[in-house]
């Protein structure tokens, strides 16, 4: 017998919409909150890492690195016209740490971060509901430890007073 997907009942749908709407109007509270960056576009989904030196030196430089462009779109509507500290973070990775450094066009601060940490990229009033910025992201890690594809999870979060 073929199973048909159940229809959304009115009660379930209403609960879903209610929960979503409550979240949408939830006022920003003091503390740390993740930022919706679902509008962000990464120029390359898969980035081949290259040895930093074409051939290794007698001192053995084992770093691999790669660069890519990321068009950020951060939804700051929750914090509009509020003082915020915006951080860019890189989730921990298994094995050797990954270092990320970036240059910006001026809306965010340039900087660097190591996997498992975060770095301040903006401090001040959130003057726009949607912050857009393009960054040149350079990734670096120990090439000896990178033996299979690895997914790096970047995130943004806001600290409010």
């Amino acid at each position: 017998m073929m199973m048909q997907p159940p229809r959304l009942t009115g009660a379930v749908l209403a609960r879903c919409l209610l929960a979503a709407s409550l979240c949408a109007v939830q006022p920003a509270a003091a503390g740390t909150a993740r930022v919706d960056d679902s509008g962000t576009v990464v120029s390359q989904g898969v980035v081949p890492m290259r040895w930093r030196q074409l051939v290794p030196g007698r001192g053995a430089d084992n770093s691999v690195e790669a660069s890519l462009r990321v068009a950020l779109r951060l939804n700051l509507s929750r914090w509009l016209n509020q003082p915020v500290k915006l951080y860019m973070g890189l989730a921990p990775v298994a094995g050797e740490p990954v270092h990320a450094a970036w240059r910006t066009q001026g809306r965010l601060l340039p900087g660097s971060v190591r996997s498992g940490a975060r770095t301040l990229v903006f401090e001040g009033l959130a003057g726009t509901a949607s912050l857009e910025e393009t960054i040149e992201l350079t990734l670096r890690t120990d090439g000896r430890a990178l033996v299979s594809p690895q997914s790096l999870q970047f995130y943004f979060e806001v600290d409010t007073p």
């Binding site: 919706d36 980035v47 990954v98 990178l146 594809p149 790096l152 970047f154």
Partner: peptide
């Protein structure tokens, strides 16, 4: 809440 980048070995 996160954008991801997949990196591949040298």
């Amino acid at each position: 809440q996160a954008f991801s980048v997949s990196i591949t070995p040298g």
